[in-house]
């Protein structure tokens, strides 16, 4: 067991965004977090690497409470891919990726950092953009750069906040395949918030379904992605089929 969340509560000025959320993330596991807008997916992710401070509850990484860890220790062990990224001053794609080496380094990047950034650049196929400016890229390209920055961090846990929201269909699949491959080959654990239920169904080992800051259901894709759950959480009528040993969701319309 790598990451354990127990009874997490987070509130903004009295309004509970997360209400006693508990979940577990195993080694080598890809965990999909699904739920409608405002369900608390992003807040959950940002509590997990202590970008936000939850009011109560406990998060442990290999048994150690993350409140007892330095920010830099957390950064060495958890990589984070935010939903959107904005640079207030110019930076090249390569320098942006190199930032992922900051938790490991001193005051500037070393040549081994550069080597690692080059490898990741290749992994996400961004070689031709290396010297371009980050803000000149399309939303999808920026998203891949940010993913690369988290990958070069070499953390054992990846927290991804809708990593495919700006990507075209091929890049969505490529990104998911990269995450899945890293999980299986390098023992990395990934927790990702996803909107696309079929991507979650196809690439997640387990799924946690959130609604209104509470865990409504958790388990393997077949047990969570049922027509009843989808109706309860999203208010959507859907048929659930099977394809390639995974559930496949066909939305039929919103519940009147």
């Amino acid at each position: 067991m790598v990451l354990k969340v127990k009874d997490l509560v987070f509130a903004y000025s009295g309004v509970k965004i997360l209400d006693r959320v508990s979940l577990e993330l195993e080694r080598s596991e890809v965990l999909g977090v699904i739920g409608p807008n405002g369900a608390g997916k992003s807040t959950l992710i940002r509590c997990m690497n202590r970008v936000l401070r939850p009011q109560s509850g406990k998060i442990t990484l290999d048994g150690i409470d993350i409140r007892d860890m330095d920010r830099i220790d957390i950064a060495r062990r958890m990589g984070y891919v935010p939903q959107a990224s904005k640079n207030s001053f110019p930076a090249t794609v390569f320098d942006t990726i190199l930032m992922g080496r900051r938790p490991h380094g001193g005051w500037k990047s070393s040549s081994s950092d550069v080597k690692k950034a080059l490898e990741v650049l290749k992994l996400v196929s961004l070689e031709d953009l290396a010297m371009r400016d980050f803000t000149e890229l399309s939303g999808g390209q920026q998203q891949k750069v940010v993913l690369a920055r988290a990958l070069v961090q070499e953390a054992e846990v990846l927290l991804l906040d809708e990593p495919t929201s700006n990507l075209d269909i091929r890049q969505q699949l490529e990104t998911m395949e990269i995450i899945r491959r890293l999980a299986k080959e390098r023992g990395i654990s990934a927790l990702m918030a996803v909107h696309d239920l079929n991507l979650a169904a196809r690439y997640a080992d387990r799924i946690v379904m959130l609604k209104g800051g509470r865990v409504l259901d958790a388990g393997d894709p077949f047990s969570v992605l049922t027509a009843e759950n989808i109706k309860a959480v999203y208010g959507v009528e859907a048929a659930v089929k099977e394809d390639d040993c995974r559930p496949y969701i066909l939305p039929r319309g919103s519940v009147k």
Partner: peptide
């Protein structure tokens, strides 16, 4: 000596925190 931290901070406070700053 803090210049790398400044670079990371211009990608946003959340990103900077997630990178240990």
């Amino acid at each position: 000596w803090k210049s790398w931290d400044f670079n990371v901070m211009s990608s946003g406070d959340e990103t900077a925190k997630s990178l240990g700053i």
